[in-house]
């Protein structure tokens, strides 16, 4: 089934570029150039995902999102030139599901759109599987029975060490593990001095499970202390 995405930005060229990328992925695109237009479209037809700019004439992205959330639970990705933490927090707090700052990497945009759509579509599907060996953390799922890892339903390939590290962190989500602790748990050896082995593995895991490894959603670095999986 072809999924419909509403793209709303006052810059026509940006809407056009996004359309090109997403149509290339097989999505149906509806274009809007301000908040009111977007709300109008949403009232009229079914949309699976909304990408909306913050700074727009008329109704801005924030208010549009608020309005959308009054009726719909469709995923909303905010697209903004503002990259400040406070802007992101604001956007996410008023009901947006993701936040992408301009200028964005087209590939990242596509990945995030896919991720949001997968979660939206498959919501509740995996939740029914109540095996003891399944650990979940947001869109991250680990099935320890067959050693499989899914991010937003998409299977991920990890090496055994990477898998063990991730499992350790997910099972103790929220707890910060120091490098030495991880080393001792995974390698079953006493940690000897500073070594970037663990750090390298962590980076590799991050590159595999995160859309943007520089701004990880799951595997966070606690600088100068260790690593943890964010409890979600």
């Amino acid at each position: 089934m072809q999924q419909t995405i509403l793209v709303c930005d006052d810059e026509k060229e940006i809407v056009e570029a996004i359309s090109i990328y997403l149509e290339g992925e097989g999505y149906k695109i509806i274009k809007a150039y301000d908040g009111l237009e977007a709300l109008d479209i949403l009232n009229k037809q079914k949309v699976d995902l909304v990408i909306i700019d913050v700074m727009m004439p008329g109704l801005d992205g924030i208010h549009t999102t608020l309005k959308i959330r009054e009726k719909l639970d469709v995923p909303v990705i905010i697209l903004s030139a503002k990259s400040e933490d406070t802007d992101k927090i604001l956007g996410l707090n008023i009901g947006a599901d993701d936040y992408i700052s301009k200028p964005f990497n087209p590939l990242e945009l596509v990945a995030r759109v896919k991720s949001q759509l997968r979660r939206y579509m498959q919501l509740g599907n995996i939740g029914g599987n109540s095996s003891q060996a399944v650990f979940k953390c947001g869109g991250l799922t680990i099935n320890d029975d067959n050693k499989e890892v899914f991010v937003d339903g998409e299977p991920i390939k990890l090496t055994p060490i990477e898998y063990n590290i991730l499992l350790l962190l997910v099972r103790n989500a929220g707890k910060v593990f120091s490098i030495d602790e991880i080393y001792e748990q995974i390698w079953n050896e006493e940690a000897i001095g500073a070594d970037n082995t663990v750090a390298v593995h962590i980076r590799h895991i991050r590159e595999k499970i995160e859309i943007n490894p520089r701004e990880p959603r799951y595997l966070k670095v606690v600088w100068g202390v260790g690593y943890k999986i964010e409890k979600q």
Partner: peptide, 15 residues
């Protein structure tokens, strides 16, 4: 914080 941990984390990031 542990500067040694940070140094090895940085080493990992920049490997």
């Amino acid at each position: 914080l542990d500067m040694i941990a940070l140094a090895s984390q940085a080493g990992g990031e920049f490997e």
